[in-house]
């Protein structure tokens, strides 16, 4: 190596934080973000219970996650701005972590807003909703985290992540309707069980299992996405020379 001043990559924390900050302005200018946020906000008009139901029965929350998370890398790649990020002294995995964090923060915000706005229209009464809101919000965050990590992985692997994501949501996740062990192969089954456990007071064990599975899905999918992102070429087509 030729002698010089700095040779180490920027620390992970700094790299992820600065990527997060750098992602904010483009995110707010992206139509994708506003479409995704609208999908999360609109059901607030129909009250708290129907909001949660529409998030998972109508797949509004996973759809919103798909729209934004699948484009975290793809949008920069299509726009041509990815080269600026990839030619910085940062680990690519830290870069993806910063982007994923921006997705998570800016998707949980409209979800929390929608849940708060939906509370006064609840059939159970405002005080009952306010009591369960923190737990429900944690479940929604877990769902956004799991679906988001999965769709970031699809975005890293494929040029058509939205198509693969729709197939996952509307074909694979339908096996939740089948009896036996099949529902355990879906994300939505664990989310629904966690949301229902409020009302049916399910055992701590099953809640713990659901949380563990969703956390494991998030961690595994994000780790795989980060690995793919760190190994893959993103300037693979011959350029205009």
């Amino acid at each position: 190596m030729i002698a010089g001043v700095k040779v180490a990559a920027v620390p992970w924390r700094t790299a992820a934080r600065e990527t997060f900050i750098l992602s904010i302005a483009p995110l707010f200018r992206s139509p994708r973000y506003w479409i995704a946020a609208t999908l999360l906000l609109l059901p607030a008009l129909f009250g708290y219970e129907r909001l949660l139901d529409s998030y998972f029965s109508l797949r509004l929350l996973p759809l919103a996650a798909l729209i934004l998370a699948s484009a975290l890398v793809a949008e920069d790649r299509e726009r041509g701005t990815l080269v600026y990020l990839l030619t910085r002294p940062i680990d690519r995995r830290a870069l993806l972590l910063g982007k994923y964090a921006s997705y998570l923060v800016f998707m949980t915000a409209p979800a929390l807003l929608a849940m708060t706005l939906g509370a006064p229209r609840s059939t159970a009464g405002v005080s009952a909703v306010l009591a369960r809101l923190p737990r429900d919000f944690a479940v929604v965050t877990l769902a956004l985290s799991s679906y988001g990590a999965l769709f970031v992985l699809l975005g890293s692997l494929s040029k058509w992540p939205v198509i693969w994501g729709l197939l996952f949501l509307f074909i694979w996740e339908q096996i939740v309707l089948l009896p036996g062990v099949f529902p355990r192969l879906t994300i939505v089954a664990y989310v629904r069980q966690l949301l229902a456990s409020n009302e049916t007071a399910s055992t701590t064990g099953s809640t713990g299992l659901c949380v563990s599975v969703l956390l494991a899905v998030s961690a595994a999918a994000f780790s795989a996405a980060a690995w793919v992102f760190s190994k893959r070429e993103y300037a693979s087509e011959p350029g205009p020379e």
Binding site: G4, V5, K6, V7, G80, V83, P89, R92, G239, E241
Partner: peptide
């Protein structure tokens, strides 16, 4: 990533 402290790139895009 270690080379980019000392490498600047002006891309074609």
């Amino acid at each position: 990533p270690r080379i980019y402290h000392r490498l600047g790139v002006c891309p074609d895009v």
